[in-house]
Design a protein around this nucleic acid. Sequence first.
DNA 1: ACCTGAACACCGTTCAAGT
DNA 2: ACCTGAACACCGTTCAAGT
Lengths: 209, 209
Amino acid sequence: VTQQEEILDAAVALADERGLAAVSMRSVADRVGVTPMALYPYVGSKAALLDGMVGRLLAQATPAAPSGTWQEQLGAIARSARQLARRHPWAAPLVFSVPALTLDSRRLIDLIFAALLEAGVPPAQVPRLERMVSTFLLGYAASEVGGRFGHDPAARDRAGDLAHSELPAHAKLAGQLGQPVDWEAEFEANLADLELLIQAVAASSDPGS
Amino acid sequence: VTQQEEILDAAVALADERGLAAVSMRSVADRVGVTPMALYPYVGSKAALLDGMVGRLLAQATPAAPSGTWQEQLGAIARSARQLARRHPWAAPLVFSVPALTLDSRRLIDLIFAALLEAGVPPAQVPRLERMVSTFLLGYAASEVGGRFGHDPAARDRAGDLAHSELPAHAKLAGQLGQPVDWEAEFEANLADLELLIQAVAASSDPGS
DNA sequence: ACCTGAACACCGTTCAAGT
DNA sequence: ACCTGAACACCGTTCAAGT
């Protein structure tokens, strides 16, 4: 482990334990046992520290090249990404702002490329479809950990069922909208739909099957 | 305009002009012409201020109920969401952490519900599919404005084409990965694929068509 | 070569006063 | 009822010294 990695790992541990807000140059330095200014030669700045933290996560996270059908490969990637987001809820929002061009990002992307190619997606469409798939997985993870879906009942109750009169489509869906959601089942259903989409794209440009 | 709205609009303007980092209780108070502490009765806290800012955006943003085919409706929503994200690049990341349960959020969601129902998606699947669609649109917008896709050539060059040997699927796609991406065309292609997915879901549970 | 200490220009938020 | 001013406990980062 280099000094830089030691610093980044300390910052990740701090974020896991006390939240991203608790990560400061001062608190990280404290944990490493050094003065805040001693970090600068290794991490450059606070912004670079945050980038480095997501880099460390990606480095640890890339699953060994998954085997099986392309559906199994994709499922393994998706589920491991979701687990990672749950272990490090502070990380998902940060990922949007770091260019997916590091070697670690590309290792993960390569696995998605491989699955898409095996699914029969024409090569010209693979990069775009990879961006669709990874964006959806990342966005869904960020929504789950961020609370956009209103997971916690506190937020649900605060909203009440106000103003259904102004929301015609909500009114038609009154039956569905009342009851709680099984998020595990929803994730698996999303995965199945993603596979449906991939198959549709593969089929639409490969009429010979 | 209430006092609260005046404060939130000042904060939004500040974020547009000088970035989210320039939004502080002190700078917002300055712009409103008041002491920082005078904001608290109206906005509660810095975190609530940020939530309120995305609330203001959603309030202004919801397009008048779009007409035409469900594809046209969905396209109008998607394109207006993308424009909004480009006008306020600081906002997309924040949206992930505010529960989509306010009246303004629900007005937007209602439009997506309506389009999905008109597409023939079974009601039991509509809420889930809405989350898929909105998550993808939001995630893609966040990726574009955040720089995850490496839009700026600076980031692209810094990465080089390192280590293709470790990335077998990248090697197979060497032809595609070299050239620049037309992001407008990609957005439209994504939209078309989203419609494909919706149609597939609608068809899979409605064999009589 | 690597680290420290003091300092600068900021933060969000509290609390007691003012009018 | 609404606002101010001073204060507290923090920030990231600079710069000049230390060893």
